[in-house]
Amino acid sequence: MTDQMTHTPETVEKTPAQAPETMAGGRIYQPLTDIVETDEGVTLMLEMPGVSAEDVDVTLEKRVLTVRGKIEGTHPEKLQLAYAEYGEGDYERAFTLSDDFDPDKIGASVSHGVLTVTLPRTAEAQPKKIAVTGS
């Protein structure tokens, strides 16, 4: 699998983030993210398997949007891990946005392990064209 990943420059799996490790000793992963811009605003879709809605933290400060998610581990009872292809850990990722959005208008929802963050464009945030008049 590792050799396959070197063939594709794009990220195909969540990767450990550059962030320092957590106090509990776990790793922090970068969630795979899609970002789409529509006329209404910007929508981010982040894959955070194992994270439920109440364990997600979305903050917007200045133009930096930070997303954090705490996972619930999936250790089945009475069983030992015999073979591992993926690691489990909390998620963290930050994005610098192109425009300033209103933090009060951010919407966030979690469905099947995917966090969707919507940043609606407010009327006053839309660029206003200044007409320059000749004297």
């Binding site: 799996e13 009475k78 015999a82 591992a84 469905s111 392990g113």
Partner: peptide, 20 residues
């Protein structure tokens, strides 16, 4: 990708498939 867990009475397979 899967993780496989083994025990005396059972085997468990876990996989991360978000967005389905």
């Amino acid at each position: 990708v899967v993780n496989v867990w083994q025990g005396d009475d059972a085997v468990a397979v876990t996989a991360e498939i978000p967005g389905i």
